[in-house]
């Protein structure tokens, strides 16, 4: 049987190979925190973390995730027990309608791991070294997550606060 581990629990994968990872999470596993904004990898609302890396769950078939470990917004923190990152989003008003928010937060969490791993980005001056963390770097690295309400600068402020208060190895688990 094909299974994947979602937020720490093993689940059998759906039998219809057409089922996307996104629809499986939202509709079959009752984890609607992961959002469907475009269903075509163009907005980032469906971002989840698979084996430690962020991806668009809308563009992957659930059956391709046998043996994978998947983290969704529901595992990052609940409403009465928010993570540091989630709290920073609330404090800085890093959302308005809230629909892109779980994707932004999953993306931000994985971004911190990427920073921690020394990954470069398209705006890094010198890609042969571990880049410094600047606003410009954060903006570029969050650009896979659209926010039509335009909360972008508040989101970046939330990330900066978390990064300032928590060195990367902690921030990544924020």
């Amino acid at each position: 049987m094909l299974t994947a581990c979602v937020n720490g629990t093993d689940h059998p994968l759906p039998s219809d190979p057409r089922r996307t990872l996104l629809d499986w999470l939202r509709d079959d596993l009752a984890l609607p925190g992961t959002k469907k904004g475009c269903d075509h990898g163009q907005c980032g609302a469906c971002t989840v973390i698979v084996d430690g890396r962020r991806m668009n769950s809308c563009l992957s078939l659930a059956q391709l995730h046998h043996g994978d470990s998947i983290e969704t917004i529901e595992s990052i923190g609940s409403a009465d027990k928010l993570s540091v990152l989630q709290k920073a989003f609330v404090t800085h008003d890093g959302f308005q309608c809230g629909y892109c928010t779980p994707g932004q937060i999953c993306s931000a969490k994985a971004l911190m791991q990427e920073l921690s791993d020394g990954w470069a980005s398209a705006v890094s001056d010198d890609i042969t070294v571990t880049p410094a963390i600047t606003k410009e770097e954060l903006r570029e690295r969050m650009s896979g997550n659209l926010c039509r309400c335009g909360a972008y600068s508040n989101i970046i402020a939330a990330l900066e606060e978390v990064l300032a208060d928590h060195p990367l190895h902690e921030g990544a688990s924020a």
Partner: peptide
């Protein structure tokens, strides 16, 4: 590929081109 040290050191053009494309989520997949 874009994160690989050898690519970044010796074939930076490839890393730069990859990083210019799509989004981090898509590049991971």
């Amino acid at each position: 590929c874009a994160a690989d040290t050898r690519v970044r050191q010796s074939w930076p053009l490839l890393a730069k081109a990859i990083l210019a494309g799509a989004s981090p989520q898509l590049r991971n997949r």
